[in-house]
């Protein structure tokens, strides 16, 4: 898992301009490893990059909300989100797997698996 000093550095380098809730949740995850904070970061980054701002925050939407059909998440938005998540959590996501993610629940679960797996292997 990323440590707090590294997380602080990434906040300054990569999260400038992002909503405070994304930044604070990222730092909280670095501190505690609590996966609910990871979820907030992932959805917050996605929401930030969406071309059309959703009517309600993604966190408050049903997990079955579809990325493409409901949120208008195009491939560029997904790539921006993926690069940012990879940078923040020191992980590498597979393009083919990403194309199979259809909903917010699937995105959250996929990122949880990767970040947990990375943490376990790093340990």
């Amino acid at each position: 898992m990323i440590n707090a000093p590294v997380a602080q550095k990434r906040v300054q380098e990569s999260l400038v301009g992002f909503p405070p809730r994304v930044t604070s949740s990222y730092l909280a995850f670095a501190e505690s490893g609590d996966l609910t904070n990871l979820d907030v970061v992932v959805l917050g980054v996605l929401q930030f990059y969406l071309a059309k701002k959703p009517a309600v925050p993604l966190e408050e939407m049903a997990g079955t909300t579809r990325l493409v059909e409901d949120l208008g998440c195009d491939s560029l938005t997904m790539m921006d989100t993926v690069f940012m998540v990879e940078t923040l959590f020191d992980i590498k996501l597979d393009d083919t797997e990403l194309t199979q993610l259809g909903t917010l629940d699937e995105l959250r679960a996929h990122l949880r698996r990767h970040v947990q797996g990375h943490t376990a292997s790093a340990a």
């Binding site: 990569s14 301009g17 992002f18």
Partner: peptide, 8 residues
């Protein structure tokens, strides 16, 4: 000055 537009 920020690297990307979100920080501008």
């Amino acid at each position: 000055a920020a690297a990307q537009w979100p920080g501008w």
